[in-house]
């Protein structure tokens, strides 16, 4: 099996089982994987790494330097570095913080093969810029947001705080069933294929606070 060197991944996670599992998945998907035990380990050999080519896939929750800090250091010292953070499933506030901090995407653990390849391919499609481009909101995205009803905007606000349908229902005085309907409508109108994508749009639209 030959590894296309054009798709290198730097995987940063402290858990050996996760390292082995995710590396196996990435190898099977024909990425070239380099594994780091910690953010410090990656920063230590930063000069030998090529952030123009590679995507960094880093866990947010690690001993030593944490994922978000690593991401901040990389974005500051290697402009254009593309980082995808791995967050705990449902930890939306953390994902939002990562996106605001310059991550190109986030993956919720555990993830499926398709989710990880989709996210990586999208990241590789981004041309590394020498300096971080100002966040531009696509006109389509802004227009889509404009089509949301006030109630849907409220539900979206609650969603990107990471609240479950049940909690949103309680906070807004709705039934959980109604909230589910709103969620589907929002996904449709915003043309989001995944919740992660919706969160990214919300971050771009600067809806999260």
């Amino acid at each position: 099996m030959d590894y296309p060197v054009s798709k290198p991944i730097y995987l940063v996670d402290d858990d050996p089982a996760v390292q082995r599992g995710v590396a196996a998945l990435l190898v099977a998907a024909e990425y070239a994987v380099t594994v780091f035990d910690s953010g410090d380990a990656l920063l230590a050999c930063m000069d030998e790494l090529d952030f123009q080519q590679a995507i960094v896939l880093a866990d947010v929750c690690m001993p030593g330097i944490q994922g978000l800090e690593l991401q901040a250091r990389l974005v500051a010292e290697r402009p254009g570095a593309r980082v995808i953070v791995m967050t705990a499933h449902g930890d939306v506030p953390m994902a939002v913080r990562a996106m605001r901090g310059g991550a190109v995407d986030f993956l919720e653990k555990p993830f499926s093969a398709r989710e990880v390849t989709t996210a990586l391919d999208r990241a590789f499609a981004i041309v590394p810029a020498a300096s971080p481009a100002p966040v531009t909101v696509s006109p389509v995205c802004a227009a889509n947001y404009g089509r949301l009803t006030p109630r849907e905007r409220e539900v979206l606000g609650e969603m990107i705080e990471g609240n479950t349908s049940k909690l949103i229902a309680r906070n807004l005085g709705l039934s959980p069933r109604t909230v589910e309907v709103h969620r589907q409508k929002i996904m449709q109108k915003m043309q989001a294929r995944s919740f992660a994508e919706l969160v990214r749009m919300a971050v771009d639209l600067d809806l999260s606070r």
């Binding site: 996760v18 082995r20 599992g21 998945l25 653990k109 499926s112």
Partner: peptide
């Protein structure tokens, strides 16, 4: 979540 991530990733690898 860590072992679950490892397991689902391994399954993903097997799928691919």
């Amino acid at each position: 979540n860590q072992p679950l991530t490892a397991a689902s990733s391994l399954m993903g690898a097997a799928q691919l």
